[in-house]
Design a protein around this nucleic acid. Structure first.
Lengths: 139, 139
DNA sequence: TGCATACCCTACTAAATTAATAGGATAATA
DNA sequence: TATTATCCTATTAATTTAGTAGGGTATGCA
């Protein structure tokens, strides 16, 4: 299960991607359109900005907007920033690897070997989708 | 990420599946071999028993053992009992469906449509693997 | 210059979940 | 009837989640 943070963050990115021009959009506008708590969304968008996916403009007429490359960024990148590892166990994570306490030899662990397959399948989707795949007829 | 409960439960099932005979095995034996807290494992095995995957025998010479059909049970079934939904959002779950508060129309939701694909890919693995696939050279 | 706007940032918190632990009840065996 | 081992309920510490509070800072406009 993904957290609301991840869900809201991705919805906000899609919202911005659906805009025809790339003018800044206020947090409050996105929050209202997507039914997200304003303050919560504020912290999420800040995270996405710090990660280099969004630009922001302060003051009147300000707001958040997509950066150039963000439209072609794989969904996997958003996922890692918002949710963390894509893998279902840390010992199988490419970007957030951690050894298991209980496991003397990973290569012999049934959970490990099963979850490698799940990870690769999930990655094959998340690494090959971008915001462009979600702009049409979508909220 | 899956919980330790799921990880430990699946490891215990694999441990039992690797035994040549189907004699009852004490919790303490599994706990020691797999480096799992005894009391925690106790509650997990009880769950698996109540779900119909394991049999149990009390008293001397007692313990847990696999039921007949468990060897051919898809891993997805264990997952649902131990962890819950396989889907990454409730609105996409086949067995634990829940509508999202924030979403007026699921069919237009980008998260929904993305996660359907992830779910189907994950299911294609978990529904087609059984304990038999994990008995060789595995801990 | 000054005021309104809108993002920036830190800290805090209530609720839920996780990962156990404690302690006894029950059933089977010898 | 003593021992063994599962069964069952309740409790708890730690962590994570999903926010909320309350200002600070930069921008644009009159």
């Amino acid at each position: 299960m993904i957290s609301r943070k991840t869900k809201y963050g991705f919805k906000a990115l899609c919202f911005l991607a659906r805009r025809e021009n790339n003018e800044p959009v206020q947090i409050s506008v996105i929050a209202e359109e997507e039914n997200i708590s304003l303050k919560f969304l504020e912290s999420i968008l800040l995270t996405l900005k710090k990660a280099g996916f969004l630009g922001a403009k302060k003051g009147k007429g300000g707001g958040y907007y997509l950066l150039e490359e963000t439209r072609n960024t794989p969904v996997a990148s958003f996922y890692r920033v918002l949710e963390g590892p894509i893998a279902m166990v840390p010992c199988v994570s490419l970007n957030f690897y951690e050894k298991c306490d209980d496991c003397p030899d990973e290569t012999l662990c049934s959970v490990h070997n099963l979850m490698i397959q799940v990870r690769d399948n999930t990655l094959s989707i998340l690494e090959n989708k971008t915001l462009n795949d979600f702009v049409k007829n979508q909220s």
